[in-house]
């Protein structure tokens, strides 16, 4: 299976689901060609609403459609969508409106467009809201399962999707479940928990570390909220060292969520890898190297963390 962006997998999944479920509608704010809802809009023009560059209104209209029985997927770049936090807070979360918020173009991996287009604080914001689970799929297979799950899930959701292509990582027979992580590689020295665009790099890093005699357990944490506490605690108990890897601000994201859970239930030595400060323009690979989110960078941080 070829590498594919999760936004592309999202667009394809919507078309299939749209045929089965007439409740599904899409909302866009002039980014449908980027969020990939454009194909759904072509196939179901009566069920796709482009409200113009007006994200707050888009979120509110989605909430209203949900209250009238539709299952709206409201998509934009993660930063623009979650930037309308107060509307999400009241019209979606507090209302418990059955709206699927889809934030694309997450992380520094969008590259050249630079910081203003990068979703880097979206997890931190949405994590603070009751009622909204956060899911970040790591490849095409997982993404399509997540979209199908989202359509069936009663209540709001936040989905975090990438612009860049992602290499397949899901094992054969994989089935996504909310609140359940996938152990992609067994290990005993360190637990590496990654999500979305960093999962493949974490797997490659684990391979590099094996050459140094370090056995890294690699977990794909698609379900960022809720966490899979059972798997987290079991793995932390086994390895005694936990590293999180995410293309998101170092503050308040997956690393923050894991830290909070561990510090209450099982204090464990931890290292959070993520984006420090603002992003910037550049080629995506270069940005991953700069922030230590490439395989070599992750492996280097793990070695340093373990003192080996």
């Amino acid at each position: 299976m070829a590498a594919k962006a999760t936004r592309a997998a999202f667009g394809e999944a919507l078309i299939d689901l749209g045929a089965k479920d007439p409740r599904i509608v899409t909302l866009d704010s002039d980014l449908s060609k980027s969020t990939m809802t454009v194909s759904f809009a072509k196939k179901y023009p009566d069920r796709a609403f482009n409200v113009g560059i007006a994200e707050a209104n888009m979120i509110g209209v989605a909430a209203g459609l949900a209250m009238a029985g539709k299952v709206p997927f409201a998509a934009s770049f993660a930063c623009f969508l979650v930037g309308r936090f107060e509307t999400i807070r009241i019209s979606v979360a507090y209302t418990n409106a059955n709206v699927k918020l889809v934030g694309t173009h997450v992380g520094v991996a969008i590259g050249e467009d630079g910081y203003s287009q990068m979703g880097l604080e979206d997890i931190a914001c949405i994590r603070a809201l009751p009622n909204i689970p956060i899911i970040q799929p790591a490849d095409e297979v997982e993404c399509k399962q997540v979209i199908a799950y989202a359509a069936e899930h009663q209540g709001p959701l936040y989905l975090r999707l990438t612009r860049q292509n992602l290499e397949p990582v899901s094992p054969a027979g994989y089935q996504f479940r909310l609140g359940q992580w996938a152990r992609l590689r067994d290990g005993s020295d360190v637990t590496v928990i990654a999500s979305g665009g960093t999962v493949f790099n974490a797997l490659e890093a684990a391979q590099q570390l094996e050459g140094d005699g370090i056995r890294a357990e690699v977990i794909n944490a698609a379900s960022i909220k809720p966490l899979d506490e059972e798997m987290l605690l079991a793995s932390a108990r086994k390895t005694g060292h936990v590293v999180t890897v995410e293309d998101h601000s170092i503050a308040g994201g997956l690393g923050g969520a894991v830290s909070e859970a561990l510090c209450e239930a099982l204090p464990t030595a931890m290292k959070r890898l993520g984006v420090q400060g603002f992003g910037e323009s550049g080629d995506p690979k270069g940005l991953y190297v700069k922030h230590g989110l490439d395989a070599t960078g992750i492996a280097r941080s793990v070695r340093k963390f373990l003192g080996r």
């Binding site: 209203g64 459609l65 107060e86």
Partner: peptide, 13 residues
């Protein structure tokens, strides 16, 4: 500021 957007969505649905 949020009610009119919700009303639009409900009216549409």
């Amino acid at each position: 500021g949020q009610g009119l957007s919700i009303a639009l969505g409900e009216a549409l649905g």
